[in-house]
Deep mutational scan, measured.
Amino acid sequence: MSGNGNAAATAEENSPKMRVIRVGTRKSQLARIQTDSVVATLKASYPGLQFEIIAMSTTGDKILDTALSKIGEKSLFTKELEHALEKNEVDLVVHSLKDLPTVLPPGFTIGAICKRENPHDAVVFHPKFVGKTLETLPEKSVVGTSSLRRAAQLQRKFPHLEFRSIRGNLNTRLRKLDEQQEFSAIILATAGLQRMGWHNRVGQILHPEECMYAVGQGALGVEVRAKDQDILDLVGVLHDPETLLRCIAERAFLRHLEGGCSVPVAVHTAMKDGQLYLTGGVWSLDGSDSIQETMQATIHVPAQHEDGPEDDPQLVGITARNIPRGPQLAAQNLGISLANLLLSKGAKNILDVARQLNDAH
C-alpha cells in the first residue's frame, strides 16, 4: 500500500501541473516587456503551470559599433537563445518575429505568432524639431536608422535628408537623439515604442507609400524545439490566425527572394473581405531603383483552434497545428507568387547589386 502511495506522490510531482516552463529572452527592456506579455497570456491559459524567465545577451546586443547589415552573420539576435533551447536550458524563446530568419536551424520551429501590433515605422524627432515631419525637416538634416530597408525607401522619398546608421537598443538610440546634436530624427518601429509606453515620442507614423515595413514587423514569434510536442501544444494558444497568415505570406515572399538583413526588402499586408493583399518591394541601397507589386488571394481566416493538420510540417519556419492547413498554404503560395513576379521584373539584379555594395563598404 505504502509503495503505491509513493508512486502516486511521484506521479503528482512529475505531472504537468508541477512543471516549471523556462522562457528565454534577450536582456533589453523591450525584450523583457514583450516576454512578460507572452508569459502573462500563458499564465492565464495555464494557471497550474509556473513560468521562469531567463534573460541573456546576444551577438546583436554586444556589437554596437557596426551596422547590422555589415556584421555579416545571420541570427544576430537569436543564436545564443537557440543555443540555450538546444541544450534544454529553456523550453521556449520569445523573439520579435522580424529577427527570426525565414529558414531556422534544424530542430527549431516557430510554435506561435502572437497578435500583431502596429507594424509601421515611426519617426521620433529631436526636441528642437518636435512638430515637424520628415518632409518639413531642414535641408541636409541627419536621420538615424539601423535599417537598409528604411534608408533606401526614405532616401527616395525625401532626397533633402541624409540617413546615417544608429545602433543600440531603444533606450540607447533615444538617448543619442536627445543628448547629442548629430541626429534631427530617428526611425523606429511603432510597436516597440508603444510597448515601452513611449507613445508621446511618436512624431509621425510612416504610411506604406512612404515606407513599407519589415517582414514580420510588429509581431512576436515564440520559438521552440520542433519535436517538443508538449510545448508546441502549450504555445499553440498564442497563435493569432490573421497575423499568422499575413506573416506566412510575408516570410514566403522574403524567403523566395532570398532577402535578408543586408538587402532592402519591404512588405505591406492587409486582410479585407476574405482577401489577403500582399505588397512587396525591393530597392537599391540608395533607393534610386525599385520594383513594387501587389497581389491578392482569397483566404478564409479560420477561428482559433479549428482542428489543424496533425502532421505539422513547417511552413517558412512556422508550425501551427491548430490552424487549418489550406489557408496557410494559400498564404505561402501568395508570397511565392509575388516573389516570382518581382524576380521576373529584375528584382534579383537589384538585390545582387545591393548585396555587393553593402559587402564592399
Score class of each variant (00 low, 15 high):
residue 348 K to E: 10
residue 94 V to N: 03
residue 45 S to D: 11
residue 276 L to F: 04
residue 289 D to I: 15
residue 253 F to A: 03
residue 85 L to S: 03
residue 243 T to P: 06
residue 33 I to H: 07
residue 335 G to I: 02
residue 118 N to S: 14
residue 302 P to C: 11
residue 34 Q to T: 05
residue 61 D to P: 04
residue 136 T to N: 12
residue 44 A to K: 14
residue 216 G to E: 00
residue 274 G to T: 00
residue 328 Q to M: 15
residue 295 M to I: 11
residue 109 T to H: 10
residue 207 H to K: 13
residue 343 L to F: 10
residue 49 L to W: 07
residue 275 Q to H: 14
residue 101 P to G: 05
residue 163 F to P: 12
residue 261 C to F: 05
residue 141 S to Y: 08
residue 67 A to M: 00
residue 294 T to C: 00
residue 239 H to V: 04
residue 81 L to S: 03
residue 316 V to T: 03
residue 56 M to A: 12
residue 230 D to A: 05
residue 118 N to P: 10
residue 200 N to V: 06
residue 85 L to D: 03
residue 359 D to F: 08
residue 189 A to L: 02
residue 73 E to S: 11
residue 164 R to N: 11
residue 273 D to F: 00
residue 89 E to F: 12
residue 174 L to I: 12
residue 349 N to I: 06
residue 311 D to M: 14
residue 284 S to L: 00
residue 155 Q to D: 07
residue 42 L to H: 01
residue 102 T to M: 07
residue 226 A to Q: 11
residue 96 S to M: 05
residue 243 T to Y: 00
residue 95 H to M: 06
residue 109 T to K: 13
residue 127 P to G: 07
residue 25 T to F: 04
residue 199 H to P: 15
residue 260 G to W: 04
residue 185 A to T: 14
residue 29 Q to G: 14
residue 158 F to Q: 09
residue 247 C to S: 09
residue 245 L to R: 03
residue 233 D to H: 13
residue 232 L to F: 12
residue 214 A to P: 08
residue 80 E to M: 10
residue 165 S to L: 06
residue 44 A to F: 12
residue 64 L to T: 13
residue 228 D to L: 03
residue 106 P to E: 14
residue 330 A to M: 01
residue 27 K to D: 14
residue 164 R to W: 11
residue 191 A to L: 01
residue 310 E to K: 08
residue 74 K to E: 00
residue 129 F to S: 07
residue 112 A to C: 14
residue 116 R to M: 03
residue 35 T to H: 00
residue 106 P to Y: 06
residue 354 A to T: 14
residue 306 E to K: 15
residue 177 L to R: 03
residue 59 T to I: 06
residue 113 I to K: 02
residue 304 Q to H: 11
residue 249 A to E: 02
residue 224 V to A: 09
residue 221 G to P: 05
residue 292 Q to C: 12
residue 191 A to M: 02
residue 238 L to Q: 06
residue 237 V to C: 04
residue 69 S to F: 09
residue 156 R to Q: 12
residue 245 L to D: 00
residue 174 L to W: 06
residue 83 H to V: 11
residue 82 E to W: 06
residue 288 S to A: 13
residue 360 A to L: 06
residue 25 T to R: 08
residue 344 S to C: 07
residue 247 C to N: 06
residue 64 L to V: 05
residue 175 R to M: 13
residue 170 L to H: 09
residue 140 K to F: 10
residue 269 T to Y: 01
residue 316 V to D: 10
residue 55 A to M: 07
residue 92 L to V: 07
residue 317 G to T: 07
residue 239 H to N: 06
residue 22 R to I: 14
residue 93 V to M: 09
residue 338 L to T: 09
residue 55 A to G: 08
residue 228 D to N: 14
residue 179 E to W: 09
residue 168 G to H: 03
residue 25 T to A: 11
residue 105 P to H: 12
residue 232 L to P: 04
residue 112 A to R: 00
residue 68 L to I: 14
residue 264 P to T: 14
residue 176 K to N: 08
residue 303 A to F: 15
residue 171 N to P: 08
residue 54 I to K: 12
residue 58 T to R: 02
residue 344 S to H: 15
residue 111 G to V: 04
residue 279 T to A: 12
residue 300 H to M: 02
residue 28 S to F: 00
residue 34 Q to W: 00
residue 276 L to N: 00
residue 192 G to R: 04
residue 73 E to I: 07
residue 200 N to A: 12
residue 143 V to I: 12
residue 126 H to P: 11
residue 63 I to V: 08
residue 69 S to V: 09
residue 203 G to T: 03
residue 170 L to N: 09
residue 258 E to P: 06
residue 34 Q to P: 01
residue 120 H to R: 13
residue 117 E to Q: 11
residue 242 E to Y: 00
residue 181 Q to L: 09
residue 112 A to H: 01
residue 127 P to M: 04
residue 166 I to Y: 07
residue 317 G to Q: 01
residue 200 N to F: 15
residue 36 D to V: 12
residue 233 D to E: 11
residue 44 A to R: 13
residue 188 L to Q: 07
residue 25 T to E: 09
residue 266 A to T: 06
residue 359 D to L: 13
residue 262 S to L: 00
residue 88 N to G: 09
residue 219 A to D: 00
residue 70 K to Y: 11
residue 240 D to M: 04
residue 324 P to A: 07
residue 73 E to F: 06
residue 70 K to V: 13
residue 302 P to M: 14
residue 146 S to Y: 06
residue 169 N to G: 08
residue 298 T to S: 14
residue 342 L to F: 15
residue 46 Y to M: 13
residue 297 A to V: 08
residue 137 L to W: 02
residue 186 I to H: 07
residue 176 K to A: 09
residue 96 S to N: 00
residue 172 T to W: 04
residue 216 G to A: 05
residue 281 G to Y: 00
residue 210 E to C: 15
residue 225 R to K: 03
residue 249 A to R: 01
residue 127 P to R: 13
residue 227 K to Y: 15
residue 118 N to T: 15
residue 316 V to M: 01
residue 329 L to Q: 15
residue 280 G to K: 08
residue 222 V to K: 02
residue 262 S to V: 11
residue 286 D to W: 09
residue 70 K to G: 11
residue 138 P to K: 11
residue 230 D to S: 13
residue 226 A to W: 15
residue 155 Q to E: 10
residue 165 S to G: 13
residue 67 A to V: 10
residue 68 L to R: 13
residue 310 E to M: 15
residue 234 L to G: 04
residue 23 V to A: 15
residue 322 N to Y: 08
residue 275 Q to V: 13
residue 41 T to W: 08
residue 212 M to F: 15
residue 190 T to A: 13
residue 279 T to G: 09
residue 165 S to R: 13
residue 110 I to K: 04
residue 42 L to D: 02
residue 86 E to V: 09
residue 179 E to C: 10
residue 172 T to F: 10
residue 144 G to Q: 01
residue 223 E to W: 01
residue 312 D to K: 00
residue 105 P to L: 08
residue 35 T to Y: 00
residue 136 T to I: 14
residue 55 A to I: 08
residue 205 I to C: 13
residue 286 D to V: 11
residue 120 H to W: 13
residue 117 E to H: 11
residue 201 R to G: 08
residue 159 P to W: 05
residue 35 T to E: 00
residue 27 K to A: 13
residue 123 V to A: 11
residue 336 I to K: 02
residue 351 L to S: 07
residue 57 S to G: 09
residue 53 I to G: 05
residue 79 K to G: 12
residue 190 T to S: 05
residue 180 Q to S: 10
residue 159 P to E: 08
residue 38 V to L: 08
residue 190 T to H: 15
residue 126 H to R: 08
residue 128 K to G: 12
residue 59 T to P: 12
residue 107 G to D: 11
residue 332 Q to H: 15
residue 92 L to K: 03
residue 49 L to M: 12
residue 352 D to G: 01
residue 137 L to F: 07
residue 207 H to Y: 15
residue 157 K to D: 08
residue 250 E to M: 00
residue 276 L to W: 02
residue 63 I to T: 00
residue 292 Q to I: 15
residue 229 Q to M: 12
residue 151 A to R: 11
residue 332 Q to M: 15
residue 355 R to T: 05
residue 293 E to F: 07
residue 79 K to Y: 12
residue 184 S to C: 15
residue 167 R to I: 08
residue 158 F to W: 12
residue 221 G to K: 00
